[in-house]
Nucleic acid binder design. Sequence first.
DNA 1: TTGTAAGCGTTATCAC
DNA 2: GTGATAACGCTTACAA
Lengths: 340, 340
Amino acid sequence: MFYVMATIKDIAQVTGVSPTTVSNVINGKAGRVSADTISKIEKAIEDLGYVPNMSARSLVSNSSKVIAMVNHVVTRNDSNFMEDPFHSSFTGAIEQTLREHGYYLMLRTVETSEELMAFLRNWNVDGLFFTGIFKDQFFDVLSVLTIPIVFIDSYVRHPNFCNIGLEDFNGSYTAAKYLISHGHKRIAFASPSIRDGGVLQERFLGYKAALTESSIPFDKDLVFEYEMDMSSCLNLSLELVKIPDLTGLVVTADIMAAGIMAGLNKQGVRVPDDISVVGFDDISLCRMITPNLTTIHQDITLKGKLAVEFMLQRLKGERPRETEVILPTYLVERESVRTL
Amino acid sequence: MFYVMATIKDIAQVTGVSPTTVSNVINGKAGRVSADTISKIEKAIEDLGYVPNMSARSLVSNSSKVIAMVNHVVTRNDSNFMEDPFHSSFTGAIEQTLREHGYYLMLRTVETSEELMAFLRNWNVDGLFFTGIFKDQFFDVLSVLTIPIVFIDSYVRHPNFCNIGLEDFNGSYTAAKYLISHGHKRIAFASPSIRDGGVLQERFLGYKAALTESSIPFDKDLVFEYEMDMSSCLNLSLELVKIPDLTGLVVTADIMAAGIMAGLNKQGVRVPDDISVVGFDDISLCRMITPNLTTIHQDITLKGKLAVEFMLQRLKGERPRETEVILPTYLVERESVRTL
DNA sequence: TTGTAAGCGTTATCAC
DNA sequence: GTGATAACGCTTACAA
């Protein structure tokens, strides 16, 4: 397949030593090898352009150096489902750090537990990042595994797992409170489909708690579950303008907020004059739209860093003292909220 | 590592046949096996939860089923380098189709040819997606390979490679022409670092050609190479407002255009009243910002589809008649350009 | 300090 | 139809 594909045997032959010795040198067990042979072998490795065959290693060593980033496949509104700046910056950052530590990143979406399990065993996967899992989903499979598993944004607790989470409840709570403190009373909540035990549910509960705390009756007609893509946002804005007295809106993602605002704008409804909006995430988009979006900030870079850190620790066999990190959120005040 | 890890041998033992027979059944060489044993074996496979060990397969068969998506690591302005909706939607789409055909996707960034080569041989990679390569870069390595290679957005021509490209020249040409036809004469060009033989160079040349064709002298002080992140865009907008008589701006990416527009806005410079802007890509963001961004459309989903299609064809050993597809671009008229 | 040999899970060749 | 056996490239006891 490739021009040359030197193996340990080739190196051994050229150098006049045994495969074992070559292997020892490669694996840094240099204590057992004379300086002379080491340099001879290293030269041969260089000359022949030897690179280890990971499949062979994996086969014999029960460690594949493969880390998987698993996404649960979600029903998506067709095409532009992932015009979501998150995953990419995230995945990129994770790949980089992993690579620096000698690991390889596989991407995979799965639909069922069986699929997941099969995949993990196909490749003898060493570690697992899992994003956006819901309560009980895949739980049967995952809790059986002994490899390091790092969850991102999941409300699952288990001693075997690490979780990098976010103050989701708190975030939306703050958002709603902020609107309330600015005189708003009729506040809607917009989010993609809210599922049990998921991030969005927490955010929803935060929103609700803020209302209750301020003695504002919760009105479930003000909760809108729409997809994040542009046309869904447009449709949603059509609904919003029909609501009498609506003055505030809490949204669970900046992109969605931006889409809605564009829709409202088209309807002649002004933000923040007619409706005030608070987003979630604080992506750079917030400063690109007019008005600049007031939002709940989260540190996505840190999230990625922590996730890999956890993974690498567990990979080394260390057990991090904390099995969970909840990153803080805070409100960034911009221009999309008006005082009533 | 996992609770059970059934192998072909186990299946053989349970069924009372030889590993060879099991292997034959698994690989659909059923012609050689009696219907009776087949069903026995299939049952055992089910019962024991057997899944093939890909490492072993890879080792023996010279085919790993691993497809790599390789990105050239770019100097990036620190963190939020990849807040770019493209790669993620792209990668996601590719993974999905690949998976449906029994392949696995590895993500990898590389800095040098050696690194790339080592990686490919480490895993005996079956196929390669390569994004954003520049002329001659990695060329030495890639032209030696016999595995299918699909380029995306690369100006490299070679009989071994497939390339999914875009009318980059034409896109920016159209953008500039559009501005010119609306009465603009001082038109700047904003882009991330323009490298020889890259996509951005083509776009730059398109812009330049439009000027020349309309007898507008090219002024290299109107070419701005800035990163795409928000703060670079802000800085760039600071420069732009200093230029006397500047009325038009051609930008090579929508996100960048949006960032610049936000910056201009902050300076009290209005789009399109003071400066008209044309973007590139037509991401959903265009309809979220005010004014809606006039831009050059490209079909990113189609790009992904074609890329996998090419890959799968070549993987099957077919040689596509065309080795290159250049996707069309066209201008989408919105609100960011004013007639002078 | 170095070498021999077995074995990881799979497929392929060839014999029965 | 079915089954030994070897081989893929590597690591690891165990010898020498």
